[in-house]
Design a protein around this nucleic acid. Structure first.
Length: 487
RNA sequence: GGCCCCAUCAUCUAGUGGCCUAGGAUUCUGGCUUUUCAUGCCAGCAACCGGAGUUCGAGUCUCCGUGGGGUCACCA
């Protein structure tokens, strides 16, 4: 297979969302698979929507996912710079060339005039096409327009022919000539439009394979025509089916919770994210669904990219995360857990690796790191105000003439002399069970409710050792004194 | 509205004319395991958008409908 050089060209307007992440992933995988270069390029030609902090966020999210690049704004490379705002002179040169060759021309319509034309085209049920002036405006015309305060842009002189794109996922797609028109390539502020800058940079940076969302498929004719006009080679294409939200609409960045960072913060593992994302619009062609990044690189092929849009299914992602956690080594889990703690406010101390490992083991079966906090967080918060869940109190303490209260009182006394280790505590409870000839639940649950207010926590020995003897006894006494929701 | 693209369980999908009584995964339901929760294990429910063709034979090919999505920006 030839070396395929790919790129991910985000526009820095916010956090990376799952759609962008998948696009980046496939580009990365394709380059790695073929030994080509993967380029990260920042397409910041929209000065109005530009958000400088977004660049770092995107880079951080990409790194968290395990996606790396060979050339990019943070590491440089032979085709630097990798921010389009630093490459303006390049685009200007090409605009001048196109102008000189008669392949582009100045235009100075106001937004209002353009709107009016579009509206009337819409009314006539016609497709709007920019009416090319005849004769074409001269440089002098442009200067005069500028003096009059009109916006001056440069439009591409569209050759007006059918344009066929050869796409590895969608096959040959033809845009009829009557759907093409003279689009803008340089804006009034002298910045290039996406179409121009993107095409020039891809060519100059050696990108020969383009993977992007399907929303660009119907616009690729512009890029092909532009390349022909500038004498660039045509790259290969692989448009990706769109990722939709649950309602079936295209995912947008306004849906804050589809940001990659939101999942990182919610306690997901990047390997689960990668695995799930890879299966959105692609599959290996068999029943295998769980695989690592290395396996994905091995298995991936553009021919197996699908054509139908996919809805983002959180339930399935959660299931993948559960599996990824089960499959991860404790070292890996520890590393990821620390990352989770570093970006969240929790009562769990993040500097004691041994303790963290114990917490991980005590919470076996957790689906996200957030589950650990929900289940064990309160054990590490000495100032926690215990809120007794009425249902738990009723079931494990009050029920049966307050058998639970009686048990709790006995426990309070015997725990006092108990050595404070998991083994000793478990042994003590087992002894009590035997003496009274009752099940574990009857003994462990009353304590659990007393010290956490709920019926859920790690196994009782772990729960109490995490809490500490002093806190345990204190919370039991508090509970007995408060006698919450007695009835 | 013009144009482009798409169409298998609720969701992600396998399926490239007979191997399909349509497979896997997620969800859901039932059961088992378990000192709690979660995990895990087992079982079950559940789909070829409609209509015409082509063919001995169609989920798979063709056409027409219908439905969905995208795009028509001085946003990318």
């Amino acid at each position: 297979m030839d070396k395929l050089n790919t790129r991910f060209p985000p526009s820095p307007t916010g956090y990376l969302h799952v759609g962008g992440a998948r696009t980046a992933l496939f580009g990365f995988v394709m380059a790695r698979k073929t030994g080509g270069q993967f380029v990260l390029r920042i397409e910041d030609t929209d000065r109005a929507r530009h958000d400088e902090s977004a660049v770092d966020k995107i880079i951080e999210d990409l790194n968290w996912l395990g996606i790396t690049w060979d050339q990019g704004p943070d590491i440089g490379g032979e085709n630097a710079p990798y921010r389009q705002s630093e490459r303006l002179h390049v685009y200007c040169q090409y605009v001048q060339k196109l102008l000189a060759a008669g392949k582009a021309y100045y235009a100075f319509d106001t937004p209002e005039e353009l709107d009016a034309m579009r509206t009337s085209a819409q009314k006539a049920k016609q497709n709007f096409r920019y009416p090319r002036p005849n004769p074409l405006p001269t440089v002098e015309d442009a200067e005069r327009a500028r003096d009059e305060g009109r916006p001056v842009v440069v439009r591409f002189l569209c050759p007006g022919q059918d344009v066929t794109i050869c796409d590895d996922a969608f096959g040959d797609v033809t845009m009829p000539a009557d759907q093409t028109d003279d689009f803008i390539i340089q804006k009034g502020d002298m910045y290039p439009t996406y179409h121009l800058a993107n095409v020039i940079d891809d060519a100059l940076m050696g990108v020969n394979y383009i993977m992007r969302g399907q929303e660009f498929l119907g616009q690729s004719w512009r890029h092909k025509l532009l390349r022909e006009a500038m004498g660039f080679d045509e790259p290969g294409y692989c448009h990706l089916p769109l990722i939709m939200d649950v309602q079936g609409r295209k995912l947008s960045k306004r849906d804050g919770d589809v940001e990659v960072f939101a999942f990182r913060q919610a306690g997901y593992l990047p390997e689960a994210m990668i695995n799930y994302l890879a299966l959105l619009g692609w599959n290996p062609g068999n029943d295998i669904e769980r695989f690592s990044m290395a396996e994905l690189i091995e298995l991936f092929t553009p021919e197996r990219v699908g054509k139908t849009n996919a809805k983002f299914d959180r339930d399935k992602l959660l299931a993948f995360n559960t599996d990824a956690i089960a499959a991860a080594s404790e070292d890996r889990l520890l590393e990821a857990f620390k990352d989770y703690l570093s970006i969240n406010e929790t009562p769990i101390p993040s500097d004691d690796d041994d303790l963290l490992r114990r917490i991980l083991r005590a919470n076996k079966g957790f689906r996200t790191f957030a589950d650990i906090i929900a289940k064990s967080g309160i054990l590490f918060d000495a100032d926690a105000v215990i809120e007794y869940e009425p249902k738990a109190v009723k079931k494990w303490l009050a029920k049966g003439d307050g058998a639970g209260w009686v048990m709790l009182a006995e426990l309070r006394g015997r725990l006092d002399d108990c050595e404070w280790t998991v083994e000793a505590i478990d042994q003590l409870i087992a002894d009590i069970c035997q003496q009274h000839d009752i099940g574990m639940g009857k003994v462990a649950q009353p304590i659990r409710v007393a010290v956490t207010g709920r019926a859920v926590s790690p196994s009782i020995g772990e729960t109490l050792t995490f809490l500490g003897k002093e806190q345990t006894l204190l919370r039991i006494e508090n509970c007995m004194a408060a006698r919450p929701n007695e009835r």
